[in-house]
């Protein structure tokens, strides 16, 4: 089964589009490298960008299960493996270009990874992704059995934590994106803390909306704690900055918008299906999924 096919070998448009989209950042970087548009230190640019995409795609993979329930879109599962394997591929690119940047001096790369704790953490995260990538095939899933496979792939949560720490640690001054990642991570993890029975319907949507607010608040707190510990900035002053737009859109606001946006989309879909399901509305034909 090719990445753009469903299990019966037919073309699956969603998978095909997603598969193509996963190559866009890499193609963009390759174009930038060849066309010399990445600035005077192109390798540094590629290291940063490929690392960003590795983490983003890992989060896409982690978000699939909650989003399936929230959006009422079970078909999303088809994208999870693709996103996870792509995260591994971008992480591999990240490390490879780092090695290229130290002029392919493997000894030096190894020494640096060993000496600099944030590199060690990133390296461990990458190593831990490898068994998940290797066991991502249908054959391996069958061989391991669902239960063992799921247990193994729970490592992705720990890997995400390592990736966020690595991301925070390498930042010089700008911690917007790691703060956003941390907020989204908390929200995604909160979904998994819901009792299985509560992972559906309006109650779940309400819970996820509440947790969205909580995750955004925690993101703001993480940001404030970071600046408090690092610069001794008063917590209240950093938290206050979330209330206005003087510094641009705050990371917490982005977390809130993304998470509430997902819940709102899920609620809109549920409402649409509820109307469609009502007999005599004539909308039934518009919503074939309503039969489910």
């Amino acid at each position: 089964m090719a990445p753009w096919q469903d299990s019966r070998g037919r073309l699956a448009p969603l998978k095909a589009i997603a598969f193509a989209a996963l190559f866009v950042p890499a193609a963009w970087l390759l174009y930038g490298y060849l066309a010399r548009t990445l600035g005077p230190r192109p390798l540094t640019e590629i290291i940063h960008a490929s690392g960003d995409w590795a983490i983003r795609l890992l989060f896409v993979a982690l978000a699939i299960t909650p989003l399936r329930q929230i959006l009422g879109w079970p078909g999303l599962i088809a994208l999870r493996r693709m996103a996870g394997v792509a995260a591994l591929a971008y992480a591999g690119l990240h490390l490879s270009v780092y090695v290229a940047d130290v002029s392919f001096d493997l000894g030096k790369a190894a020494r640096e990874i060993w000496l600099r704790s944030y590199l060690t953490i990133g390296f461990v995260a990458l190593l831990a992704l490898i068994p998940l990538g290797v066991t991502s095939t249908d054959a391996m899933t069958r061989r391991l059995g669902g239960k063992r496979w799921r247990r193994l792939h729970r490592a992705s949560y720990a890997i995400a934590v390592l990736a966020i720490v690595h991301f925070f640690w390498q930042s010089k001054l700008d911690i917007r994106e790691p703060v956003i990642m941390a907020g989204l991570f908390l929200w995604l993890m909160a979904f998994r803390l819901l009792p299985t029975a509560a992972r559906r319907g309006g109650a779940m949507l309400a819970a996820m909306a509440g947790l969205a607010v909580l995750a955004a608040a925690l993101a703001a707190l993480i940001e404030a704690l970071y600046y408090n510990l690092r610069v001794g900035a008063p917590l209240a002053r950093v938290l206050e900055a979330n209330l206005g737009f003087a510094n641009g859109v705050s990371p917490a606001a982005i977390v809130l918008a993304a998470t509430l946006g997902a819940v709102a989309a899920g609620a809109a879909r549920a409402a649409f299906l509820a109307i469609a399901r009502r007999p005599g509305t004539g909308a039934r034909a518009l919503a074939p999924a309503a039969r489910a």
């Binding site: 600046y227 610069v231 900035a233 008063p234 002053r237 900055a241 003087a246 510094n247 641009g248």
Partner: peptide, 10 residues
């Protein structure tokens, strides 16, 4: 200078 609006930097 937008960077200076982040009042928690010195």
């Amino acid at each position: 200078a937008p960077g200076q609006r982040a009042a928690w930097y010195p």
